[in-house]
Amino acid sequence: MIIRTYQDSDIQPIVSLFYETVHTVNKRDYTQKQLDAWAPQAEVASKLAAWTESLRRHITYIAEIDDVIVGFSDMTPAGHLDRLYVHKEFQGQGIASALVKRLESDARRLGLTEIDTEASITAKPFFQRHGYQMIQPQTLERRGVQLVNYKMIKHLPPDNRDGEAASG
């Protein structure tokens, strides 16, 4: 697996990956009505344009295996982990962990002391295993349908790459 920075040519495959992942992986925690509100097929064209702009502004990484995009994640420069999706056929292979580790490293390099996200019911255990703490559950409304997710945060220790032990 390689992790590389986002390129505009990635937009079509990652939007497709998003829709497929939401409608397959997340169906164990959300109803079909909720999935359709979260990722409606009628919205693909507008999402291509909107995501192209936001992914350019964010710190965005793509995970590839054998030239196939198998995951992506992005974070705002202020430390909000916005999107993290792994292809439905590549779940449980460490792809999400590698993407989050890369974003957390960038956050430390930028001098950020925390990173936050809004995790789905499905993703909450993943983030908890990676040191994120739940701040609060949230109920969002999308297209008249209520969806539950969780505001989560991780406090980042300073990047201590110089090898010096902290004194105190």
Rank of each mutant, 00 (worst) to 15 (best):
H130R: 06
F126C: 07
H130M: 08
D74P: 02
A39N: 03
I69L: 10
M1T: 14
A50N: 11
V86N: 01
Q41R: 15
D8K: 14
F126S: 10
I2M: 12
T52F: 04
A45V: 04
E43F: 10
A165L: 13
L48W: 00
R28N: 11
D36R: 14
Y19V: 14
I59H: 01
L140I: 09
G71V: 03
T122M: 10
D10N: 10
E114D: 07
V68C: 05
M152F: 02
M75V: 05
K151R: 10
M75R: 07
E20M: 06
L156I: 04
A42K: 14
D66A: 13
R4D: 02
Q146Y: 02
L35I: 11
E141R: 09
E118S: 15
A42T: 04
Q12C: 12
Q133C: 08
S54C: 09
F126A: 06
K27G: 05
E118K: 15
E89Q: 12
A39M: 12
I62H: 02
K124G: 08
G71M: 05
G163Q: 08
H58A: 07
P137S: 13
R109N: 09
A96N: 02
L55G: 00
T5K: 15
A45Q: 13
F18G: 05
R57A: 07
L17S: 06
D116M: 14
G131I: 04
Y30I: 12
Q91R: 10
R57Y: 00
V68S: 10
Q138W: 03
S120D: 03
T60Q: 01
S54P: 00
D82Q: 15
L84M: 11
Q128D: 06
H87F: 02
L156F: 07
R4F: 07
D74F: 13
V22K: 02
V22T: 10
Y19S: 13
L84W: 02
Q138K: 12
N160R: 14
Y61A: 01
L48H: 00
T5Q: 10
F127T: 11
D36M: 14
Q41W: 15
W38R: 09
T76R: 12
M134D: 02
T122G: 11
Y30G: 15
L55P: 02
G79E: 06
I115P: 01
G144I: 03
I62Y: 06
D8H: 13
Y30W: 12
T24W: 06
P13F: 12
D116C: 13
E114T: 09
M75P: 04
V68P: 06
V70P: 01
H23I: 13
A119Y: 02
I95V: 13
L55M: 03
R28S: 15
S54R: 11
L84C: 12
F90I: 01
T122S: 13
H155S: 12
Y61W: 02
A37D: 03
G144Y: 04
F126E: 04
T21S: 15
N149P: 05
Y19L: 15
A98D: 03
Y30D: 02
T52L: 05
A39C: 15
I135S: 00
R57E: 00
W51F: 13
T21K: 09
L147S: 03
R129I: 05
P158M: 09
H130V: 09
